[in-house]
Every structure is written in C-alpha cells, then in structure tokens.
Amino acid sequence: MVGLIGIAIIFIMVFGGYLLAGGKMGIILKTLPFEMIMIGGAAVGAFVIGNDVPAIKHTIKDVGKVFKGPKWAAEDYRDLLCLLYELIRVARSSPVALEEHIENPPESSIFGRYPKVSADSEAVALICDTLRSVSMNYDDPHQVEEVLEKRIEASLHHKMHSTHALQTIADGLPALGIVAAVLGVIKTMGSIDQPPEVLGKLIGGALVGTFLGVFLAYGLVGPFAVKVKTVIEEDSHFYQLIREVLVANLHQHATNICIEVGRQNTPGHFRPSFSDLEEALKSAKQEAA
C-alpha cells in the first residue's frame, strides 16, 4: 500500500506541476508509446542480456516486495523464539527425542505449531542442520558461529542479486533516454523544411525521450531497487536471530537466557516485550505438555 501511495505522489507531483505551469500533455501522450517501446524495450533487452533465467525470475518476483514489504512480522519473531525454546528444551532433556523433529520437520509436532516458520525452508534447514551438527559433537561455539555467519552472508548475497539488477537498469535508463532523444532529433532533422510549429512539436517529442529515461530511473526503478534491498536486509535479521540463539545454546547458557539473547537481537520494531514473550513461552510449554 505504501509503495502504491509513493508512486501516486510521484505522478501527481510531476505531471500536476507540469500542467499547473501551463504545460500540455498532448505532445507527451502522442510520443509516449513510441518512446516507451524504445527506452523500455532496450532496458528489458539489456536486463535479459545481463542475467540468466533464474535471476530474471528472481528479480521479477522480488519487485513484489516493494508493495508487500518484509516477509516476517512481529508475531513471526515471537513464534521463532518459541520454536527455538521448545527445540532447545528437548535437546537438553532428551537428545534422542530431538532427532524425530530435526530429521523430519514436516512431521514434527513442534514445527507443526509454527506453520509460517516451518514453511520457510531456509529457516528450517538452518535450525535443523545446526542442531544435527551439535548432536554429532560439532559443538565449538566459535566455529559454529563462523559457519552460520558465512552461510547467512552467502544467502544474503544471492538474494541481493535482484537489487543489483534493478539498480543497473536504473543506471542505464537516462542513457537510453538520450538514445531515444537523439533518434527524435534525427527524425526532426529530416523535416527541417517544415514550419516552426511543426519543428517545435518534433523537438518536443524528441525531448520526451530524455525526460522518460530520467523519470523512470530516478522516479521508479531506482527507488524500487532501494526498497527491495531494504526489505531483504530486514528479513535477514530473522536468520541472524536463529544464529544468535543457537550459538548461545552452545555456550551452555540456560534456555531462558538463550531466548532472551534472541529477543534482545530482534529488530526493535519487531521485538516482543519481556512479558509478552514470557506468556508465549508459557503457552508453548502447556501445548507441549
């Protein structure tokens, strides 16, 4: 919703100001379809040249993040902390009983109580792989933390590809606008024998290309790239929280302390209060009983 409001403000302010200043939309509307074919088509072609099919699909999918926002909400962070709390309790009381949960998460009663977290394969793999390695005596906190950090960084780097692709398009659009404008000038030069009013319209049409390239770059595609990057970085905190809690567990802190470490590392606008988390953990205990 916020993204749509931003787009509306851009169009209203730019074209509203133009009309209030006495500008006429006739030339722009007449030239716009042809300029869009040249500029937009060239931008899409360059995008296809510079990316493989998975990257193209990934970028198109990520554009939706501009309007949807972050995947994880405050209740998801709370659920994640409750899930980790239950798994750590089981791991410490009965390591054998933990195996049924980490070896087959879709059938796990613990994972089943948190469907949104369980539906995220990356989060589930991060949790299960780490707990499995601990059961195999790979439990040096510093080594595990380093492995998890590199794993999360690699995943984040991959997800950031769409923002780089969008930013590359934004960087190229002004130049493509100039290309379209030059073609318009070439067309105008072919009609140099026409009266001034005709030449004025042709030159105005040519300048629409420059305007459109700059407008698309700095008014739409560039902000889209920034928003996608912001959302991806914000969602990455979810996986960093998993790392913090599991590493705290390896340091043999009390289970409640491990979860408190996670709560403290939750982004401020998503962080549950101490009392709210206590209530959620009590409910989790009752459901597990």
Rank of each mutant, 00 (worst) to 15 (best):
G3K: 10
I9E: 00
I9A: 12
I9M: 11
F11S: 01
F11G: 00
I12T: 14
M13Q: 05
V14H: 06
V14E: 07
F15D: 05
F15S: 03
G16A: 01
Y18H: 09
Y18K: 02
Y18D: 06
A21F: 03
A21Y: 00
A21C: 01
A21G: 12
G22H: 10
G23D: 02
I28C: 00
L29G: 04
L29V: 08
K30D: 14
K30G: 10
T31L: 00
T31E: 15
L32M: 14
L32A: 13
L32F: 15
P33F: 08
F34K: 10
F34S: 13
E35W: 00
E35S: 14
M36A: 15
M38S: 13
I39C: 06
I39G: 04
G40Q: 01
G40D: 07
A42T: 15
G45L: 09
A46L: 14
A46K: 15
A46P: 07
F47V: 10
F47H: 12
F47R: 07
V48W: 08
G50A: 15
N51E: 09
N51D: 04
D52C: 07
D52L: 03
D52A: 05
V53I: 15
V53L: 15
I56F: 10
K57C: 03
H58K: 15
H58W: 03
T59E: 10
D62S: 14
D62Q: 14
V63L: 14
V63W: 02
V63T: 12
G64L: 03
K65S: 12
K65F: 07
V66R: 03
F67A: 07
K68L: 06
K68Y: 06
P70S: 04
K71H: 07
W72H: 11
W72K: 06
W72R: 08
E75L: 06
D76E: 05
D76G: 10
D76M: 06
Y77N: 08
Y77W: 09
R78I: 00
R78Q: 14
D79Y: 05
L80G: 03
L81N: 09
L81D: 01
C82W: 03
L83C: 13
L83Y: 08
L84N: 04
E86M: 12
E86Q: 15
L87K: 03
V90P: 06
A91E: 10
A91K: 05
A91H: 06
R92P: 07
R92S: 11
S93E: 12
P95A: 08
V96Y: 04
A97L: 15
A97Y: 05
A97F: 13
